[in-house]
Amino acid sequence: MNRLLVAGAVAAALAIAPLATSPVLGQQAAKTWTAPKTPWGDPDIQGWFSNLSENGTPLEKPAQFAGRSLEDIKGDELTSIKQAAQNRTIESFAGPLHAPEDWWQKDLNMVKGSQAWLIIDPPDGKVPALTAEATARQAAAAEARRANPRGPADSWEDRSLYDRCITRGLPGSMIPAIYGNSYQILQTPDYVAIRYEMIHETRIIPLDGRAHASPKIKTYMGDARGHWEGDTLVVETTNFRDEASYRNSNGSTLRLVERFQRVGPATVKWSVTVEDPKTWVRPWTFAMPLTIDDTQPVLEYACHEGNLGLRNILSAARSEEEAARANK
């Protein structure tokens, strides 16, 4: 009797399973879910978020997907791509010198990644061509490096702003790394605040329609202004410092327009439109979901305070020079 009941339950579960994943049911579920509102009536996008599962997704559309759209690549195909990416990530950290595995490997869940690449516009999934001005600017920078060659660790200034624990900039601060991919969004009627665990950034975005700060005030994270467009928070950020301007763009003319839209019980869709007429021939947009995850609160990341890495990189470089001189 008991065995019969169990068998019946299994059969019922099997019958339900394919239905649950059918698009029709999925749409019905989407219709019954209504986006939450804050007590004062704004769309509610608050919470702790993680985008660890989106780690390793290429920005541009890989050549292997030529002729296919982002929506086409799903299910087993997507899972196998993500599994391969996860394997590559773990392999890339193999070797004698690397961070302890338990810092990050057990949490890595790239197999849950939701897309095969990030750029949604232009349709070819590629970063648009550089303007002539940007080509000349980048060539001049490369020439300056050739004229005055430096080693990889002559000083801290030869290391990245990330190595130096200064900033990952924008949109870099929201791009997942192997650990520390927790974020928090908080709202009031006048402000939205976004906190990034890596490497401890806080953006406080006014919603009151005020003008941007003077162009003379430049920062690594830029000057952000936000407003609601229907159910979407639109954040426009300008006034970047050149050293941190995204993909070597022009900090004074770069304008990033982010959109945050709650599209499901645990999902906020985040997109970024990148615009800099001095760098790209047209604006372009990439997107990535942020997943609400209360088990991943933002912890204090005292990157600079504990930056033994930079100290060791510099002292190791000096030791190598010393050894080379001794061998002469």
């Binding site: 080693g151 130096r164 624990c165 200064i166 406080i204 005020r210 700060a213 920062t219 001189r325």
Partner: peptide, 29 residues
């Protein structure tokens, strides 16, 4: 002030010479 806002004070770069100056490559060597 109507335009009051926090302006990033990322002071790490102001302290690097102090903290790491002794580890800079000495070009005379």
């Amino acid at each position: 002030e109507k335009n009051a806002q926090l302006v990033d004070f990322k002071c790490v770069e102001y302290a690097e010479e102090l903290l790491y100056g002794h580890l800079r490559k000495d070009p005379s060597k």
